[in-house]
Design a protein around this nucleic acid. Sequence first.
DNA 1: ACAGCCATGTAACTTGTTACATGATTTT
DNA 2: AAAATCATGTAACAAGTTACATGGCTGT
Lengths: 194, 194
Amino acid sequence: MSVRHALLALLSEEPKYGLQLRQEFEAGTGEVWPLNVGQVYMTLQRLERDGLVASDEASDEGPQKVYRLTDAGRDELTSWLGPPPDTGVPPRDELVIKVLVALRMRGVDVVELVQSHRRHLVATMQSFTELKAEADERDLGLLLVADAEIYRLDAVIRWLDSAEARLRQGVDLRFPSVPMSPLARRRRGLGVKR
Amino acid sequence: MSVRHALLALLSEEPKYGLQLRQEFEAGTGEVWPLNVGQVYMTLQRLERDGLVASDEASDEGPQKVYRLTDAGRDELTSWLGPPPDTGVPPRDELVIKVLVALRMRGVDVVELVQSHRRHLVATMQSFTELKAEADERDLGLLLVADAEIYRLDAVIRWLDSAEARLRQGVDLRFPSVPMSPLARRRRGLGVKR
DNA sequence: ACAGCCATGTAACTTGTTACATGATTTT
DNA sequence: AAAATCATGTAACAAGTTACATGGCTGT
């Protein structure tokens, strides 16, 4: 739902058209977050359907279809800004899944796998550091987006390290490590195979 | 694409059926990552369509439809495990977008907004720490997933702090901070409004 | 005039969500 | 027998991706 509201925000400045929205979105994120055009048009259609934007269809000259924010759109935007993003269920991180999977597969050198991923993450982090170094230091969008990615990658690396430490420590911990309690079985309702 | 391969991994141990896969997935992640059943069945259908799993349709007794991993599925699984997850384009983080949006909207107290989100993140982090404390320390899945979330939240908090520092420093930096170079205009192909 | 770009859109697909429908099997 | 739960599925939707189609405008 991020793009939806990002477009609303861009339209809150002044009426704009499709390609322009894509361009300003990418410029505002230091060209780090690409945004495909098709999604812009799709999102604009849905926003219009939901009454959050309106299009000035009667564009007398030029092929550009200009959208503007409605009052409902402005309300939606401000009420979206405050509340923190849903934190109920943490996102399923693919790398975490890979490690969990590797742990319960036989014949996989988990430590080697962890270190391989770690090397890749460090390199990626480095590339973002370089991106920042080369960039215009007044480009707040780029700085913030690059920082966000650097902090994120750093967290993943730390997690990998802590995971590796856990593995080296309690060596032959293997799934299923914890047999479910009868209560949990009942609650989750696992059936019986025949 | 994570769930897809997680299911393959679970099936690599032995043939299993739908609900069982859902249950084992959730148990393996310390009940922190729920997995809706519909997706399991959908994913199984696609996996079968792609020849990565096969179903023993002729289940003589019981309603359970058991799926097993094919050789192609095993290949897919091992070739998925090694390569690091796509790192080309960083994910669009909703909170980052909120801050970027707040920055270029007039009449929004960005610092207040940042601090409000920060408080919420700290509380969420705390809840995961408690979850770990209460949990069976042999539940590797829970520990790893909770750790991953804790590190992730910590990174977001750090980013918020650095962002706030940037704001306090270069106070009235406002978008659009960097006018695009003529070259960039040409490259991105921004048209002219009439 | 023709090539290339601007601008809008559609189509087909994947992953994921919630909600509902439908039998079969236990449990009470 | 009725209720609960097991187990499988479908429908409808949202958001996102890539690829393609189609005109209009511009530069040479």
